[in-house]
Design a protein around this nucleic acid. Structure first.
Lengths: 198, 198
DNA sequence: GTCTATATAAAGATAGAC
DNA sequence: GTCTATCTTTATATAGAC
């Protein structure tokens, strides 16, 4: 019942969350164990249970922190870019950065695929992540249309979904195809985004 | 060492492959066990080992059969549709059918996401699946361009990847967002495909 | 906050009878 | 082809000392 929230983590707990996140993005919820974390961090399994009594709690905290950081990144984009087109391109770059490092999947893409094999509390967090992303993207596209920068006849919601799905899919397919997909997520995102230009 | 190939399965083995595939599409490689199959089929675990000594072999056969059936479906599309646009729309419908049933993921989308947590032989099959799909899509788009039906200036390979990634992503996001994504894969696919029309 | 020791259950797999 | 019985290893988790 400790460490219920990502905002009050001790340095030791933070390190566990870091490693858990990387393992999740690489192998999924059922693809890693407390032993994997222990080995990587250099402590023993029961020490992890001291910080996060159950795996479900640990992964819930990882997911909350991921969502929170993503929301911060979206606010950063709004600060740095005024135009809808530029905001969408910067959005695509977020996925490129995640994937570009070590071909890591989006945490929520991975957990979303495994939705039926994941604790309900985690699945719920993941759902919030995607809803927030779709809301943000739809707003950006609609604003761009109102400003006359984006084609007014396209359906904002549909194209928000198209962009999000293309980016998430690019990470899955890119990893699965093992190099057969040359452009990263950002390049595919650009193909969608330029088609929106007025 | 038995049942190395999907084309020589006994009826009992075929039933195991059916159930294993459904479980894989629902929960992923590490999200199901021989016990889950046994419960569903109504036999005991060791009976499954008689047909498929290891889980890796079982999943490899599932994947081979899936790929083979998909390739058959692509040949069916070529038989039924002459135009590139129609072929691409029929392709998108394949994903709609998989997802539409029970919000099931593409088998190879799931295994691709889990690529690092899956036996090497399985990961290799999955890679072949995506390469074959990208090859087929690129060919269809290039043919459409040569026939003057599709816009000649778009990069065939990039848009083949965009379509495939959007469809795979739509299944992941659709399941993860739990109803927040209204259009199924086919609707997102159409948004990509119509933009290719000459 | 970390450890050793331990509990409990599940997963993957094998031996051998029917 | 299926079963019971069994083995081994791993995963998740707890108790209690330092």
């Amino acid at each position: 019942m400790k460490n219920r929230h990502f905002s009050e983590l001790s340095p030791a707990a933070e390190r566990l969350v870091d490693v858990a996140q990387a393992l999740l993005q690489r192998a999924g919820y059922n693809g890693f164990s407390y032993e994997d974390i222990a080995r990587e961090v250099g402590i023993k399994k029961p020490s992890i249970h001291h910080h996060f009594p159950t795996k479900a709690e640990l992964v819930a905290v990882v997911t909350q922190r991921y969502m929170h950081r993503f929301a911060e990144a979206l606010r950063g984009i709004e600060t740095q870019h005024d135009g809808a087109l530029e905001r969408l391109l910067a959005y695509a770059e977020l996925f490129e950065q995640t994937y570009g490092a070590q071909r890591q999947l989006c945490l929520c893409g991975m957990l979303g695929a495994e939705a039926d094999a994941v604790p309900a509390e985690v699945a719920h967090e993941v759902q919030q992540f995607f809803k927030a992303n779709l809301r943000w993207l739809t707003d950006v596209i609609e604003s761009g249309q109102q400003q006359g920068r984006l084609r007014p006849e396209v359906n904002a919601s549909t194209h928000a979904q198209l962009l999000l799905c293309a980016l998430e899919g690019a990470m899955v397919v890119g990893r699965a195809a093992g190099g057969a997909v040359h452009p990263g997520p950002a390049a595919l995102g650009r193909a969608v985004i330029v088609s929106l230009e007025a």
